[in-house]
């Protein structure tokens, strides 16, 4: 069953065409990774999927409902998509648990006690210890912040999680704790679309890897298929990321 479908998505900023007809399907329970060099359009594409960036052309469906339709109830459809940002973007004035609760109380209309219970459960799922629940974002490490951000998205019970380079703002040490959480969620069957530069992680977690360059999808397949990619452009990119010249990928 396809839970997210994008068809021929185009986006232009002034004279620069960022997306050139990107199409992608995501099945229930699937984990798909998008890779590509900086400026490939990965983040823009991800933001188009929940209309944080409005595409110039193309159609997008979430759980069978078209979010790009002029009649679409965008705020309701956005609740079906969990989004984790590269820049963390926690609400500064709320504690960790407050960040998770606010969507539940103010968007989903849950009672405070129910929201609190759910927020605690979700924070435990992303391994945020109880002593951190009442801390403010400025009092948390980068990795802790990103896990709270994942919890905030996850608590809304989305049908798909979108991760936009969730570790790019973190030190390598802190990245691993975030990647571990994403991997665990993915293994539990949470449908995920992940933009990342971590090739090793992509191979480990992805059912399929999609490679983007200059606003287009230039190739893709399972990690195994990608290791033996025939497409020169894809091979060159993968080799570059891997730091290898002989084409052998780990």
């Amino acid at each position: 069953m396809i839970v997210l479908r994008a068809e021929d998505v185009w986006k232009r900023y002034d004279d620069t065409i960022v997306l050139r007809g990107v199409s992608l399907n995501l099945k229930k329970g699937e984990t798909k990774v998008i890779m590509g060099p900086s400026g490939a359009g990965k983040t823009t594409f991800l933001k188009c999927l929940n209309l944080l960036v409005k595409p110039d052309k193309g159609r997008i469906w979430i759980d069978g409902e078209e979010i790009t339709s002029p009649k679409a109830d965008i705020t309701r459809l956005r609740q079906k998509i969990g989004f984790v940002f590269q820049e963390l973007n926690l609400f500064h004035h709320l504690t960790a648990i407050g960040n998770v609760m606010i969507g539940l109380t103010k968007v989903k209309g849950m009672s405070k006690s129910d929201a609190l219970k759910k927020a605690k459960e979700t924070l435990k799922r992303v391994h945020i210890e109880e002593e951190l629940w009442r801390k403010y974002p400025a009092q948390l490490s980068g990795g802790q912040k990103q896990r709270v951000a994942i919890a905030r998205a996850l608590a809304m019970d989305p049908i798909v999680m979108l991760y936009d380079e969730p570790t790019s703002a973190l030190d390598p040490g802190l990245s691993s704790e975030v990647l571990l959480v994403i991997k665990e969620l993915s293994e539990r069957g949470i449908t995920s679309l992940i933009v990342t530069h971590e090739l090793g992680f992509a191979y480990e977690v992805a059912d399929e890897i999609v490679v983007m360059n200059r606003g287009r999808i230039i190739g893709g397949g399972s990690p195994e298929e990608l290791r033996n990619a025939k497409n020169d452009e894809v091979r060159n990119l993968l080799n570059k990321w891997n730091g290898l010249k002989d084409g052998v990928l780990v």
Binding site: N50, L52, T75, R76, R78, Q79, I81, F83, F85, E87, L88, N89, L90, F91, H92, H93, I102, G103, K106, V107, A149, R152, A153, M156
Partner: peptide
């Protein structure tokens, strides 16, 4: 910062709610 506004939109907040619950509590402080 605009990232927080994007994050509020991403969890399904309407503009009115994100002003009320995210922007104003910080801006007033």
């Amino acid at each position: 910062d605009y990232g927080q506004i994007l994050a509020a939109k991403a969890i399904g907040m309407t503009q009115r709610k994100l002003i009320l619950y995210i922007v104003l509590p910080q801006a007033l402080r």
